[in-house]
């Protein structure tokens, strides 16, 4: 069956040398094959040193975010049939490369941790469950589904420019997820934490995040809602 060409980013900092693109040719491509399947086969059949992350293989775990023909996405849910050849596969941009397609996600997780992605109550814990009305629960749709793949944040120019200070779309989407939660009581502190020119306000509504999110989420919209809430509480 069909043959496809791949140009894959190779880099091993421990060996020294410069990053380079390596050409691979893969035959017997099935019509339904995903990019992740191709990477697995290249590793098994042609070069076992090729290094990449992957796990669930169905867009749930969020570990195989890569840059595919210039756009971030998950290898496991990107059909080869939709890709122009040679397929250029790179690590997600703006992150330190550990090896080949594997990047260091420290910075990303740091920002996630900083938004305190969990419910915070100031009142004493109650003995029963915290109930939500269906409407209150609906507000979390489009927020809780994030798999923390990092496609959005690493596609964001504001994050490339200020990776240490700007929280990035993924963390800000989660910030809004807890601001929007009727059970959370930490609104004032959460908003105060995001004030200043960098953490939230480096966002210039470029919208790369919403374009690339494999779960179809919209961090730009969440960021807008955070700004709105800040404004409402000021006046």
């Amino acid at each position: 069956m069909a043959t496809m060409l791949f140009d894959i980013y190779r880099y091993d900092p421990e060996q020294g040398g410069k990053p380079f693109m390596q050409r691979f040719e893969l035959d017997n491509i099935d019509p339904g094959m995903m990019l992740r399947d191709a990477l697995i086969r290249i590793k098994a059949e042609q070069d076992e040193t090729l290094t990449f992350r992957h796990s669930c293989g169905e867009g749930v775990c969020g570990s195989d975010a890569i840059n595919i023909n210039g756009t971030n996405g998950l290898g496991c849910i990107t059909p080869l049939s939709e890709l122009k050849q040679p397929v250029k596969v790179r690590p997600v941009p703006g992150m330190p490369v550990i090896r080949d397609l594997v990047v260091d996600m420290q910075q990303f997780y740091h920002h996630y941790r900083e938004v305190k992605p969990y419910l915070i109550r100031h009142e004493p814990e109650q003995e029963v469950e915290f109930l939500q009305s269906p409407e209150e629960r609906d507000k979390l749709d489009g927020l809780y589904e994030c798999i923390l793949c990092g496609c959005c944040t690493t596609a964001c120019p504001s994050f490339w420019w200020n990776p240490d200070k700007f929280r990035g779309p993924a963390a800000l989407l989660q910030a809004w997820r807890f601001l929007a939660d009727s059970r959370d009581q930490n609104t004032a502190e959460r908003l105060e934490e995001l004030e200043g020119p960098y953490k939230l306000f480096r966002c210039h509504t470029i919208m790369n995040c919403a374009n690339v999110c494999p779960k179809g989420l919209n961090p730009t919209k969440a960021i807008g809602l955070i700004k709105q809430l800040m404004l409402k509480r000021q006046i």
């Binding site: 020119p197 953490k199 306000f201 700004k227």
Partner: peptide
């Protein structure tokens, strides 16, 4: 002052 530099700047 950092309070003035985020939301206020954006609003201005």
């Amino acid at each position: 002052s950092h309070h003035l530099s985020g939301l206020t700047a954006w609003l201005v």
